[in-house]
Design a protein around this nucleic acid. Structure first.
Lengths: 138, 138
DNA sequence: CTACTGCGCTAAGTCTACCAAGCGTGCGCT
DNA sequence: AGCGCACGCTTGGTAGACTTAGCGCAGTAG
């Protein structure tokens, strides 16, 4: 079943990229998603297949739709889910395949600055994660 | 977490009722859904919580939408999903809360007889299951 | 320099979703 | 009567989802 493994790996990479876009460290996201940080690490590297509950928790923490993750795992026939009413902008941006990572970050930053004053969604990162990471010797 | 347990039991009962409506025995459905029959038995009685994969297999075998089951388990925020294009009639009937079980059975029977000749979806039950079952001593 | 903190990862254990084998019952046959 | 088959359920066992403890590294502060 290499197909499932590919999907698993793709899901992990997707989660990791979304986490980075949201500017969260692995441990922060793990806390938000109510899982342990080593486990989330393996999930992101495609070693373990997360249960649907865990996927939902991760989706909620990342503020993306759970359908999105389910679809990636082939659990949902189909189609791209409609973005939600409220905070759909950020998700739409993050998911747009025609935007580069930098473009997404920029757009989101601008969007947040625009909506800064009004009805802010509570989302504190007390400390921004240190983004740098040296590659382990292959 | 009694909430989750209730949901689990409700899901099991729902699956069992849908299986009966589809006129399938436990073993038949287990075979269609690619799970073992004892396991399906426990799932229907709310003892075990099926994984999303299993839920999808069951949904496919019962010809209902996977979203439906996910939503029942609280894995999907949403509301009742729109029935699919082709073959949605039977599902719509089965899911209608305003119909009794007998009404559903009757309707489905009529519907099948009407659509009998044309493009039949492959669904063989070589033998109808014996529906009778005496209650075990409580 | 040492001490502290946060990062991601490895290692070892626990728990439970899922399976194969087998039991007891009820029905239809000869 | 007895045989055979299908029904649903109980019982161990295996594997993998998930946890807690701890490693090594990089940055910042005293």
């Amino acid at each position: 079943m290499t197909l499932a493994e590919d999907r698993l790996k793709a899901l992990g990479e997707f989660i990791r990229s979304q986490r980075r876009l949201a500017n969260l460290s692995l441990r922060q996201l793990a806390r938000l998603a109510k899982v342990s940080n080593p486990y989330l690490s393996q999930v992101e590297r495609g070693i373990y297949k997360p249960s649907a509950e865990v996927m939902k928790h991760i989706a909620d923490a990342l503020e993306i739709s759970a359908e999105n993750l389910y679809t990636r795992m082939g659990l949902l026939e189909g189609r791209a889910p409609a973005p939600r009413a409220g905070g759909g902008v950020e998700e739409a941006v993050r998911l747009d395949p025609r935007l580069s990572t930098d473009q997404k970050e920029a757009l989101i930053r601008v969007y947040r600055s625009m909506t800064a004053g009004r009805a802010p969604r509570p989302r504190r990162h007390t400390s921004a994660p240190r983004t740098v990471r040296s590659k382990p010797p292959s």
